[in-house]
């Protein structure tokens, strides 16, 4: 059994709900299926405190349609990349800040707020990143339903063609 498999089996032993939801993709890669917010937080705490995943590379936000997914790329001394996923519904995209474990995730969490419209709890009071000042509220460009063609650069407004959508629905 190699290192990656040992790590996975340790998580399985600790958390029954995680069984078969985490798999070793190849050497140095562990990828999980999306977990709910509570389950995710238990696993990330365990990974950080006991399994030695002290480095956080970044967070990948991803639009699953109904849900928003957040993939946390964690690393340890053996340079394994652990892609731990979290999934929340678009109606209530609330997650907790993981900066208490990984201070370096701050910038990436700010990015989730701006680009995916995630609501990150307990973020420090820092300027928003990366959208420019004056960006219209409620516009999250990395969501799949946001189309750059409808954004007016000069007035900084987003004007989706409401009529066309209705006609499509009628047909």
């Amino acid at each position: 059994m190699n290192n990656e498999e040992i790590i996975v089996s340790k998580i399985f032993d600790r958390f029954e709900f995680a069984r078969d939801k985490i798999h070793v993709q190849k050497r140095l890669r562990i990828i999980s299926d999306p977990f709910s917010r509570e389950e995710f937080e238990q696993i990330i705490e365990y990974l950080h405190d006991e399994l030695g995943f002290k480095i956080a590379h970044h967070i990948v936000g991803i639009d699953y349609g109904e849900d928003l997914g957040f993939i946390y790329m964690l690393g340890n001394d053996e340079h394994i990349i652990f892609a731990l996923k979290e999934k929340v519904s678009k109606e209530n995209p609330e997650i907790n800040s993981m900066t208490k474990y990984y201070p370096s995730l701050l910038m990436h969490e700010l990015e989730l707020v701006d680009l995916f419209g995630a609501i990150v709890k307990d973020l420090p009071d820092v300027p928003s990143y990366p959208l420019p000042d004056g960006w219209p509220k409620g516009n999250h460009p990395m969501r799949k339903d946001w189309n750059p063609a409808y954004f007016d650069h000069k007035t900084m407004t987003y004007n989706p063609p409401a009529k066309e959508v209705k006609e499509d629905e009628k047909q």
């Binding site: 590379h57 970044h58 990948v60 991803i62 639009d63 790329m73 370096s104 910038m107």
Partner: peptide, 25 residues
């Protein structure tokens, strides 16, 4: 270290690409 994440849905267009450039770290 430069990390690329690529998610494909089976079409010829990627579903999501995320680039973690070294400067970001």
């Amino acid at each position: 270290e430069n990390i690329h994440y690529i998610n494909s849905d089976g079409s010829d267009i990627p579903y999501r690409i995320r680039v973690r450039a070294p400067s970001e770290a």
